[in-house]
Amino acid sequence: MLKKFVEKNHYKFAKNASDWKEAVRMSCEVLEQDGTVEENYKEDIIRCIEEYGPYIVIMPDVAMPHSQECAKGVHKTAIAFMKLEEPVSFDPEDEEKDATLFFTLASCNPEEHLENMAGLAELLSNEDIINELKEAKTPKDLLEIQKKYVD
């Protein structure tokens, strides 16, 4: 999966984001660049978080921005990876709702989406991979983590 992020240019490394909304917008940029999603998608995700709370923070340090399946403006099924050097807070009263790793989902094909989710679940179930992703700074680092743990 990490190799796929690099091959498709679906990755971003950044120092920080001013707040969680900017982080969500940043996490969608690489998906917008290749036409996977339209500009409205990031605002749909932000509206969902404002309505339902920080449901996208699935574990400490890890967020999975997404909207509903087959959301308006989604043209391909994909996942993008973003890593921030500094955590962004989704809930100032709960440190466990801080995130530095973002796996942004776009879905318009249920079968591909399930495959992506299974791959992501496998990736995130390995604490060593998560720890190494927190230290990653380049696409080469992603490929090395892939080689070390997955290949």
Rank of each mutant, 00 (worst) to 15 (best):
K4F: 08
L142D: 01
W20M: 02
F90H: 06
L31Y: 06
E132M: 02
E144C: 04
N40T: 08
I56P: 07
T138Y: 06
A17V: 09
H113K: 00
K8Y: 10
D151Q: 05
C70N: 15
D94I: 06
L143V: 11
M59D: 08
D128C: 06
K147A: 12
W20C: 03
C70K: 14
G35F: 03
K76W: 04
N109V: 07
E122V: 06
D44C: 06
E127N: 15
Q33E: 12
R47F: 09
L101M: 02
D61K: 10
D91G: 12
P65E: 08
L31A: 09
Q33S: 10
M59P: 06
N116C: 12
G119H: 09
G35M: 05
Y55F: 14
T104N: 10
D19R: 05
S125D: 13
E111H: 09
V37M: 07
K72A: 13
D44I: 12
C108E: 13
K72R: 14
A118K: 15
T36C: 11
D44H: 12
E144Q: 15
Q68P: 05
T138N: 02
R47L: 13
S18P: 00
Y41H: 03
E50L: 14
V62S: 03
V24E: 09
S67P: 03
E93W: 14
V150G: 03
L31C: 04
K147T: 10
S89M: 04
S125V: 08
I56H: 05
V74R: 03
E43F: 10
E135Y: 11
E69I: 08
E29D: 11
G35K: 01
E127H: 04
A121R: 05
K134F: 07
